[in-house]
Nucleic acid binder design. Structure first.
Lengths: 214, 214
DNA sequence: GATAAAGCATGACCGCTGGTCAGAAATAAG
DNA sequence: CTTATTTCTGACCAGCGGTCATGCTTTATC
């Protein structure tokens, strides 16, 4: 009989329902200040029930992080699909733009990926959600490396660059910049009279110079 | 009589003593797991006394963050003093190396700057320590901008770059990369067979290409 | 339909943490 | 020595993440 499967489906549905609600109140009030009691009230479930579906509060973060990373990956994949026959350099650029678009269009998701940055790594091979999120991130990184490779093959990217380190630098660079803008953006806008958009444009331009063949 | 000044001096000494002890146990055990009771025991003071010298636990972090930033600034300043008549590009490079050296030689301090990254900004104009740390960071940033300017003047750096955004990108880039290496370094070492040093070398090389005149 | 078994939901409860405060102790002033 | 002031103390508190004995609902068996 299909009872078992139905139960499993229902369980998954409830899990998603909890996540939906958690996302809402985490993003509205700030994930730190929301207590598990708050979430219990918001979901109209008892606190104990929450812990039936998620080992602890961290697990909730990591589960939302999975959604975030999935979204990020989707946008980066779409960016490549949109320009199937672009050269490698253009592909790298497209990936960068997609990453930026993700951070700007889904700031709460982006925040969650930052919050889980360390958590995700320390919980690898121990938490299903950590593994899943890591997997999406890895896929994105592979796309970046492939684009770099393609660029070297088609001559749009300097031949003498090592793929791995270059990809890591590009990733870290963009990640770091978005983080700085996120936290100190308003400050720099006042101080330097420069908008975040202008800085991002500069970053993309500078990345081009980095990769250009001599 | 000099009683008042002596008291003030003693107060400052005790404050530093608390910070010294806090640094020790925070860095040895991890700042998160150390409780204020732990710190009280370690300092041989009562918990209440700790709160006489620091508003709360965050204030302790921010105060240690000041020490960290001071160290960072010192190292970056020394880097410039060591090569007084280098051209702008070399100065930028020297600053980058100094920043990296700071992160590698004082990993606990570096960790603390990361932990306080957001805190420091949100507490600006409200917390003496936040302001002080921010000031040191600002000085470093100014050094970077001046080096870029000098580079444009002496022809070692592309003329068409905007100083502000370029400095921000460089800063964010290095910051982001060090963070990635810090958290996922071991992972990438396994995955890509690339050491952190090699990635850092790549980063410096790539930065050069970014700034080079055509 | 009655009964047993299994799974699920509950919320009172726990330990621990950052933070407080009334009173004790120490120091300075008269 | 007495008084006034500053400094220190640790028992105490509220709030948090997390647990678990208890009761309830659903499923399986006859």
């Amino acid at each position: 009989m299909g009872t078992a499967e139905r139960k499993l489906r229902e369980k998954e549905q409830r899990r998603q329902y909890i996540l939906d609600t958690a996302e809402q109140i985490f993003f509205k009030q700030g994930a730190d200040v929301v207590t598990m009691d708050d979430l219990a009230r918001a979901t109209e479930l008892s606190k104990g029930t929450l812990y039936l579906y998620f080992r602890n509060k961290e697990a909730l973060f990591l589960a939302i992080n999975v959604r975030a990373k999935k979204q990020m990956r989707e946008m980066m994949e779409q960016a490549l699909i949109a320009e199937p026959k672009a050269n490698g350099l253009l592909q790298v650029q497209a990936l960068g733009r997609a990453y930026i678009a993700f951070a700007m269009e889904y700031p709460d998701y982006y925040q969650m990926t930052l919050r889980c940055f360390t958590l995700e790594t320390t919980h690898l091979d121990q938490d299903r959600y950590a593994d899943e999120a890591h997997y999406h991130g890895e896929k994105c990184f592979e796309m970046l490396m492939l684009a770099l490779q393609k660029g070297q093959a088609d001559g749009s990217i300097a031949q003498d660059l090592e793929i791995g380190p270059t990809a890591l630098v590009l990733w870290g660079q963009l990640n770091g910049l978005m983080q700085v803008l996120d936290v100190k953006g308003p400050y720099f806008q006042r101080k330097l009279k420069v908008t975040a958009d202008a800085v991002i444009a500069s970053c993309l331009e500078l990345s081009l110079r980095m990769l250009n063949p001599r």
